[in-house]
Each structure stands twice: as C-alpha cells, then as structure tokens.
Nucleic acid binder design. Structure first.
Lengths: 265, 265
DNA sequence: ACGGCCCTCGTGTCAGACAAGTTGACGAAG
DNA sequence: CTTCGTCAACTTGTCTGACACGAGGGCCGT
C-alpha cells in the first residue's frame, strides 16, 4: 500500500487479452446486455481476425470474471449483473475508462467510508511509533504546502493529493490486515478521481482536508479507536461532498424519513 | 442476499475447469510456491491426460485470478501472494476446503466486522417498514426456538443459524448497497463455519446471540446509526469469541500496548 | 393443437504444426 | 580466468482443421 511503484515490466498484452478487454468494454457499456447471446466464437474470430482458440481464451477470461455464462450446445450469454465479479481489477478498470462507473461510484464511496473508518479504529489499537512518525511526516508535508503557496495550482493539488493518499495508505498498513488494504487498492483509482474533484471545487479544500487528517492522526496517536472511526467518518463524508446529498448522513440526523416508509414488499 | 437458493442448474464442470481447480488447490496448499515455475503446458497435458488447449484454458483461469504469471518464452510462474485476487470466489473456495484459511480467517472476520457494523449504520437510515417487519420475524423465530426447546441439538443449531444468517442478510439488503452485500456473500461460507462454532461452544450461546440481535434491531428501528454500528460491533466481537483474544478489542481498552511500540521501520 | 423426432448450430475437445520470445550454455576473445 | 556474444533448446502464443456432444428449433405425424 505504501509503495505504489508501477508493475515490474509491462509485457505487451497478448491477442486474447486485447480481445477480452474489448469484449469486457462492450458488455460494461451495455452494448450487449445481460441475457443477450454473445456472437458465436467463429463470428468473433472473424470480427477480430484471429483463430478460434484465441477467442476461446478471451471468452474464458470473461467467464472467470463472471460476465458471461457459456454452456455446451447453447450460445454463450451475458450473465446477470448479480453474478459479475465486482471486485475484479479488470472489471473495475473497464468501468472506469468507459465512464460506466456512475452507477457504482456512490456505492464505492460508501464502501470506502465503511472500510476506512473501520480501519482507523483498528489502526488506533495497533499503530507503532515509526508508523505514527510517518503519518506525521505526511501531514507535515501538507502543512508546508499550505503555508508556502497562496493559491493551489493543478500541480499543487497533485502533490497534496499524493500526500493525502500516502497518509490513508499508512493508516491501512497500520491495521495489519491486508484484506482491507487490498480492498482499498482495488477501488483506489476511482477514489483518486473523487478526491481531486472535491479538492478542486472548494476554495478552502486543502485547509479543511488538513484539519480532518490532523484529527484522525490525533485519535490514532492516543489509541482512541472510537474517536479514530468517528474522525475518519467525518473526513470521508467531507471528501465525498460532491454528491454527499445522495449518500447517507447518519451522523447529522438523516433526512431520509421520506424514504423510510416507502418501498413495500 | 435474502434469497439463498442454489444456482439455477449445475452443469458438470468442463475439463479445463476441473484441471484449473486442481491447480488452484496445489498452489493454495503450497505445493507450488510463489516464484516457483509451473510444469510446462505439455507436461500438464500429459499429467492430466488432456490436450494442450485444455491446459491452456485452465492456466488462463489461474492468470485471471492472479495466481500465476505467464509470459511467452519463459515458463509460467506462481505469482507473489500480493498479486492474488483475494476476493475471487474460486480462490476463497479453494482456501476453505484445503483448510488453508487459517492465515486469512482472522482477517476475514475482522473485515466482516468492519463491513457489517458499517452496514448496520447505513441500514438505520434507510430501512423500510416491511424490512423491519422481516427482521422482527426472524428474531421472533429465534425467540420461539429458544423457548420451545430445552437443549439445543445439532438440528436446532442449524435452524437457529439459518435465522441468524437471514437476519444479517436483511440488514445488508436495507443498506441498498450491493457492493457490501456482495462482499459478505463472498466470505459467507467461512462465516457460517465460525458462527456454528461459537454457538456450539457456549451453553448459553443462542440466548446471548438473540440478545445481540434484539439490540441491533432496536437501533435500526429507531434510526440511530451510531447505536446500530455499536451494537453490531459488539455482537460480532461476541460471535468471534473463539479467537477474540487475537482480534482487536478497541471497545474495551485494547491491551495492545506491548505491540504498540515495536516493529520499527 | 400438441407432442415427439430430427437437423442444425455452437461449444467442448483433440491433434499437429509453426512463430516468437527467454534462458542458459557453450565457445571465442580480451 | 573472466567476459561477452552467439546459438540452441525449451516454453508460451497462435494457427489450422476436425470431430464429439449437448441444446434448441422446426417439421411432421397424430
């Protein structure tokens, strides 16, 4: 989590990988909808000008991600969304760069809020001194940036965001739970988008963000798990302010009474 | 989540599926370790007495799960655990029935606690009347069982566990966040094991469990998100009592000071 | 109108072959 | 003896052609 270097060596994708990517995109952007039949392997082979085994491997990949079901004798169909492997990196990536994540973005932000506030609580009980020092360093960096520059340019926002991300990574690392870490890693790319947006749109964004981080650090330092969870909750509800109205806001007397008595059955 | 029927029709697994299952097991139980080279495709084809394309599709599946890396020219290697797709159903399944989940079980329980307590908070703000009624029904069933039987037999524990699971499913459904639902679905099989254990080992297990559920329901009914999170937290810390000593217990003054100042770097 | 048979289509599997990249060993040069 | 370049063997990636088997739809007879 703390080390975000790019992959070791990026080998050029194989034919079947390219094709499966293309197919994933077709499905994610709804060109082929759940229940619809996929083109036959032979047809796909013609479309992409490759042999059938290559197509088969590509389709196999889709099967593993849960996007399609193929049975002998019957044409391969797109699976119901319920069966999709939402946490597969390929699917997430496809959703991001087809822009088809609007529908799941809110759920992702909500998931992040749940995970990270829980993580903050765990970190409060487990963090070591060196980890605390690292967290302080990141916050120190934020403070410096805030003091040294008058108005935030694009570059500054980038650097600030970097420190932000590193801080959150440190908190996750301190939980000693790599499942939590991995989960956030998976949805990370999306988070970065949202983070930038909230920083750009508010003139005093960085200052408020810094305040939130300071509160979190303080709670974690003192080992107060409940306070850590609470401050992370608040910080993340602020981060998601761009569409916060649609999120739950259970900490401020949720105005959800209207929804509450509806939806029978 | 609420409907747990088995899949529509279980078609017999294909050859490549059987082979990939076998390979996943070999890797998960450590017979081939990260960094080691896999047998060549031809060798695997001989071992399993199938053709090379079948082997290739099986290996392709492993690649998607992130268990192996294959590049042209070089033999396929088992990937570092860091790259494994921890949330892939096949990997989880393999970890369960090879018994190799000890290392991740604690992390899973912790993850569940984080997710479900967050979910309870969300549910408190979004639950509908019919959903509340359903939750009450499940708790009512538990109460009946507790009242009608003197000592819990294996069968009773099963039924009690069923109601337990349905209740938790209802809470998740009420969040309207299918990412949370899916996450719990994925780790569900493991949870069932743990749940049974904690119920069997404590003589007054069911009674205490019932109490916990009642508290959760009450908080959700009154729309008190903080109380819902708290009661779910406590309930799940009780559920995990079999190894709770190893889990965090941030709600009771964590005795983790010893760990706190160690682990430099 | 209904039910059973057959034919067609599509996936599952096999065999053999060539292309392309990697690795390691061997040999030549310094 | 060390070092570097070349080559050969191995492994994965891709292609071709073919057959088996299950599913679905249309046709035909009742």
């Amino acid at each position: 989590m703390a080390n975000d270097e790019p992959a070791v060596t990026l080998r050029s994708p194989t034919l079947s990988e390219r094709i499966s990517d293309a197919l994933v995109r077709r499905i994610v952007r709804g060109e082929i909808q759940p229940g619809d039949a996929m083109p036959s392997e032979e047809e796909l082979a013609t479309q992409f000008d490759v042999s059938r085994p290559v197509v088969r491997e590509a389709v196999k990949e889709l099967t593993v991600i849960g996007l399609v079901e193929s049975r002998q004798g019957r044409s391969t169909r797109v699976a119901p969304e319920r069966d999709w492997n939402d946490f597969d990196p390929r699917l997430i990536a496809a959703r991001i760069d087809t822009g088809a994540f609007d529908t799941v973005l809110l759920e992702l932000l909500e998931l992040r809020r749940v995970i990270e506030s829980g993580a903050a609580g765990l970190a409060a009980g487990r963090r070591t001194s060196p980890e605390l020092a690292q967290m302080e360093a990141e916050i120190g960096a934020m403070e410096e940036m805030l003091a040294s520059v008058d108005s935030f340019e694009a570059d500054d926002i980038d650097h600030f965001t970097d420190a932000d991300i590193r801080f959150h990574g440190l908190v996750l690392d301190a939980t000693r739970n790599h499942l939590l870490i991995r989960l956030i890693e998976l949805i990370g790319p999306l988070l970065r988008v949202g983070r930038r947006m909230s920083l750009e749109r508010r003139p005093d964004g960085p200052a408020e963000s810094l305040h939130g981080h300071q509160a979190i650090l303080e709670a974690i330092r003192s080992g107060d798990a409940a306070a850590a969870r609470q401050s992370m909750r608040e910080h993340l509800s602020w981060t998601a302010n761009l569409r916060l109205d649609e999120l739950d806001d259970d900490d401020r007397g949720a105005p959800l009474a209207s929804r509450r008595e509806s939806t029978p059955g």
